[in-house]
């Protein structure tokens, strides 16, 4: 019951946030201008701002946040590790490396969507590598394989920065790595959202197996859970959802880590029930962070990944401390 109220409340907050994100920004739009602009056949300034800039940005923020929160919840349930998230398995780093390769070789100049496409590919390769390396082993093997893939991808990122042909390329790579939703277009939506939708669908399908896994792998298997298939579904789902998310926005940390922890007490710690509220909370958090980047308008834009890390890291520390108090 508690969980249902939580889902409803999160959904309501998400709607409010979505509305706010359409109105807030460098140009503040009154609500009636927005409605008028979207409905009228003639191009108005408000209609252009909302239709071409803020609406795709809003859709991406919601989908990316949901993907991050959901995959964090699934991976924590699958690996029964409170630190698990897409980054732990190297998927977001792999996606970042793919995107950076596109920037490094200047592919973006000839083809605008080269960055997200190569990012997606990088995420898939990282997930496939982690899966292949851990095929014969269990949960720990998957975590270790993921950590290895993640380190290799991080080394690749460092190399790309080191070898950047000119300071401008290096700057472009760094800013991209910080994550942002600024200047994302409908093309990004059409490219990223289908992958995120299919990925999230796969992730949601793992829910009953995650519940069974809360009494360990042997018992889950005896209850009919096909561990290999669940692992494959979780990894493929994460590769699609987070791979696409990272490919479109750059690296955004901490949402996948923190969102599941925040909602877990409200659903009685049932790993399968954590999924939906985690996705909703992830969307709310990313949307709030994106609105934050627009409101804090200094000379340089504060990047999305920077906001989530600055707020997320201390928050995570508090979470660790308070969890230790609750369960000695």
């Amino acid at each position: 019951m508690n969980g249902r109220i939580l889902n409803f409340a999160l959904f309501a907050v998400l709607l409010a946030g979505a509305l706010a994100s359409l109105l807030a920004g460098r140009v503040w739009l009154p609500p009636n201008d927005v409605v008028e602009g979207l409905l009228s056949p003639n191009a108005t300034l408000a209609g252009l701002i909302v239709g071409e800039l803020r609406l795709p940005r809003l859709i991406l923020a919601v989908c990316v946040g949901a993907s991050l929160g959901l995959s964090g919840a699934v991976l924590q349930g699958l690996l029964r590790n409170p630190l698990a998230e897409a980054g732990l398995l190297g998927i977001s780093t792999g996606a970042a490396l793919g995107a950076v390769v596109a920037i490094y070789y200047g592919l973006t100049a000839s083809f605008a969507l080269a960055t997200p496409l190569l990012g997606l590919l990088g995420g898939f390769i990282a997930a496939a590598l982690a899966f292949a390396l851990s095929r014969s082993g269990g949960t720990l093997a998957l975590i270790l394989a993921g950590a290895a893939v993640s380190s290799v991808a991080a080394a690749g990122l460092a190399l790309a920065l080191n070898l950047a042909p000119n300071p401008y390329a290096a700057f472009e790579i760094t800013t991209w790595l910080l994550g942002s939703l600024a200047d994302r277009t409908w093309d990004h939506v059409w490219l990223g959202v289908p992958f995120m939708a299919v990925g999230c669908g796969l992730l949601f399908l793992t829910a009953p197996s995650l519940d069974a896994l809360s009494i360990g792998e042997a018992q889950a298997e005896s209850l009919g859970v096909n561990l290999k298939r669940v692992r494959l579904m979780a990894l493929a789902g994460t590769a699609m959802a987070v791979g696409a998310a990272t490919a479109v926005t750059g690296a955004v940390g901490f949402i996948g880590l923190v969102a599941p922890h925040l909602v877990r007490p409200f659903v009685g710690y049932r790993p399968g029930r954590v999924l939906l509220p985690s996705a909703l909370l992830g969307a709310v958090m990313l949307l709030a962070a994106d609105i934050g980047t627009r409101l804090m308008s200094y000379n340089t834009e504060i990047k999305l990944g920077v906001i989530t890390s600055i707020i997320g890291a201390p928050f995570f520390l508090w979470l660790v401390l308070s969890m230790r108090k609750r369960a000695p």
Binding site: I215, A218, P271
Partner: peptide, 17 residues
């Protein structure tokens, strides 16, 4: 799974359900 139940040695609960 419907035909048999299996209880391993010293099973553990992973979450506070």
């Amino acid at each position: 799974a419907r035909a048999r139940a299996y209880l391993p040695q010293s099973p553990r609960a992973e979450w506070p359900i």
